[in-house]
């Protein structure tokens, strides 16, 4: 258990705010996964938790540990950097795979070169 008593109140309040905002954004992103209608829209939803949610919770962690140990604890930055570099790679490969599968199965998900289709992707 943390020695929370030695934390100043403003640090505790700031940490609490970062934690709650980050967790709320992760929840909204995952909720969007259930709510949106087709694959291409659903692929947008987890980005919310990946960027702002992760950043907030990492900020809470950095703040809490830095004040507790009275020296800057910056190794959480590594997770943020990895998340920024890796999430686009997975999403890009996944979207390319889905475009390839849709084209292979003859669904009209692939935008034509001249007129980008306004109705996105396959149903379901």
């Amino acid at each position: 258990m943390i020695e929370a008593a030695q934390l100043p109140l403003w640090v505790a309040l700031l940490t609490a705010m970062f934690l709650l905002v980050g967790a709320a954004f992760a929840l909204i992103g995952s909720f969007g996964l259930l709510r949106l209608a087709n694959f291409y829209e659903r692929a947008h939803a987890p980005t919310l938790g990946n960027t702002f949610g992760t950043a907030c919770i990492l900020a809470a962690s950095v703040l809490c540990f830095s004040v507790q140990q009275s020296r800057p604890m910056l190794h959480e930055v590594l997770i943020a950097i990895f998340a920024f570099v890796t999430t686009p790679v997975t999403l890009m490969v996944l979207v390319r795979a889905v475009l390839f599968r849709d084209r292979l199965e003859g669904r009209n998900g692939m935008p034509r070169p001249e007129v980008p289709s306004r109705t996105a992707g396959p149903p379901g």
């Binding site: 943390i2 929370a4 309040l13 609490a16 709650l20 967790a23 995952s30 259930l34 938790g49």
Partner: peptide, 23 residues
Amino acid sequence: MSAVVLIWSLSIAQALLALASVC
């Protein structure tokens, strides 16, 4: 006081994240 704030916010954040995992 700060212990109470921290414990409650941690519990709520964990509940929200668990709900997100369920989604």
